[in-house]
Amino acid sequence: MIAHAIFFYTFSIIAVVSAIMVTASKNTVHSVFFLILDFISISCLFIMIGAEFLGMIMLIVYVGAVAVLFLFVVMMLNVAQQKNQWFAGQQSSKHIPVGLIISTLIFVEVIIVIGGWKYKPEIFDINNSISQVSISNTHSLGQILYTDYIHVFQISGMILLVAMVGAIVLTFRQRSGVKRQSYIKQISRERAEGVEVLEVQSNKGVKLDD
């Protein structure tokens, strides 16, 4: 039990500290690295409560894909230029009220969830019933996702697909004057249309492309 507690507090302290560092560090790339550290320690916490599937999916999706794209974008931005704009303290006052409202909302939501857990435990009985079954985490998740909640699951997948298509449509632009490689054209090219054998007469030469 002691080892369990040590691990729990280590991971949660790392998670909280790195979450603070995400907002506190001046360098954007460092922020993303702290975000990654946060994701990793949270997935460790997931694994510690026995939700190994969630922990691994967290690693694969957030750390392996989302954060890589974050890093990709942040590194491409001209960070030095932004430092002057963002950290000069002139424009930032406009964003503070909005940020405060959103963070208060999230805080209230967290209080509601934790309070409900504390004072109305019967609401969460459905969750407890799953973990008591002696099958693995992944199996129980699959059994509940693909039976009781199949429609919600499918709809959320559809929403993600629509969001992806929407993002592509919004950012897609057809550029003119770009030479594209057509593989079918290349492969189906015959010798007859590509090569022409000419008799070259001396002192006259050949004229091409007239």
Binding site: E52, F53, M56, L59, I60, G64, S136, N137, T138
Partner: peptide, 10 residues
């Protein structure tokens, strides 16, 4: 572990 292949992939 139960999720060995996911671990490898991660």
């Amino acid at each position: 572990i139960n999720v060995g292949i996911l671990y490898l992939f991660a």
